[in-house]
């Protein structure tokens, strides 16, 4: 890979942050466009009622998931709190990384699985949780495990868990809004004018396409965040080879995991299932390539 130009992790972090920012702007733009078209079709009063309704329900959702996301995720993969006596190297590596990153010590968990994988959760660095599989502790060398843990700690440092929760809420709002709109069409008085008809068709098309589009954007954000976490993980360890070699081991080793629910897949270090177009994670090859150019 020496023919490629070197990638500076500082640039990489800044670039990824901007991309994520633009992606979330796109979601908001779609939400407003959808609201606008609906407002043109109905009188503004009903539009506000619909918007308030959608926002209220998604707020309920965000408050709930904000406070319980970590315990739900941990319970769903049957993770156990790691004891300091039993997992000394695990603790020692994370403690070193908290010094490198200036973050508080997260709570550490282990989940039973042969796969090499890990995830981070918790609403902010003070309530952060890191969980690794037994397979990862067993099969990874010290520097590889450190790379993986630095990646997870970066999710904590970048507030990725909070960000992804908010994204999920934005996506949910669009979905609820378009659903309400499509259902409300049955109750709509027909006033035949041409402009109204065109607007109606545009509205229906938007209501059907918006949730799909917004979900694709959400997946793209998730992938960008993985690249960002790789880059800032390297900022902590200054050793891209460790993470790259861990990813290579994952590529060679991992079998699709049956026991992990699809709902928690975006949290993981590597996709627990086979990769596809609708993946929450970027392809391993691409991640390894970028790391090797750092």
């Amino acid at each position: 890979m020496s023919t490629h130009t070197r990638i500076d992790f500082h640039d990489q972090i800044a670039k990824n942050k901007w991309k994520s920012f633009f992606l979330i702007l796109t979601i908001i733009a779609v939400f407003i466009a959808l609201g606008f078209v609906i407002a043109m079709l109905y009188d503004p009063a009903s539009f506000f009622v619909i918007m308030i309704f959608a926002i209220f329900f998604s707020l309920l959702y965000v408050v709930f998931s904000y406070y319980s996301s970590d315990s739900i995720a941990l319970a769903s993969v049957r993770a156990k709190e790691a004891s300091r006596q039993e997992y000394r190297e695990y603790y020692s590596l994370v403690e070193g990384l908290t010094i490198a990153s200036g973050l508080p010590m997260p709570r550490l968990y282990v989940m039973p699985s042969r796969q090499i994988n890990a995830f981070a959760s918790g609403r902010d660095p003070e309530h952060a949780v890191i969980c690794v599989t037994e397979g990862a502790l067993e099969k990874l060398e010290k520097r590889e495990l450190e790379g993986v843990l630095a990646h997870e700690l970066s999710h904590v440092a970048n507030y990725d868990i909070r960000f992804m929760t908010l994204t999920a809420v934005a996506v949910g709002m669009v979905a609820i809004l378009s659903e309400l709109f499509l259902r409300s069409l049955w109750l709509r008085n027909s006033d035949d004018n041409k402009a109204g008809a065109i607007l109606l068709i545009v509205g229906i098309a938007l209501a059907i396409l918006a949730p799909i589009f917004v979900q694709l954007v959400q997946l793209a954000i998730s992938r960008k965040r993985e690249y960002a976490a790789d880059a800032s993980g390297v900022k902590f360890t200054r050793y891209p080879q460790g993470l790259a070699s861990a990813l290579k081991k994952i590529k060679a080793d991992n079998q699709p995991e049956k026991h992990i629910s699809k709902a928690v897949a975006p949290l993981f270090f590597a996709n627990p299932f086979n990769a596809n177009i609708l993946s929450t994670h970027p392809p391993l090859e691409k991640r390894i390539e970028i790391l090797e150019r750092m």
């Binding site: 990384l97 200036g102 902590f236």
Partner: peptide
């Protein structure tokens, strides 16, 4: 050897800050 890593990390964090 873990402490050696930590000394290095704390110096790195100082530089970053």
């Amino acid at each position: 050897s873990a402490t050696e890593d930590r000394v290095a990390y704390s110096r790195q964090y100082y530089n970053d800050s």
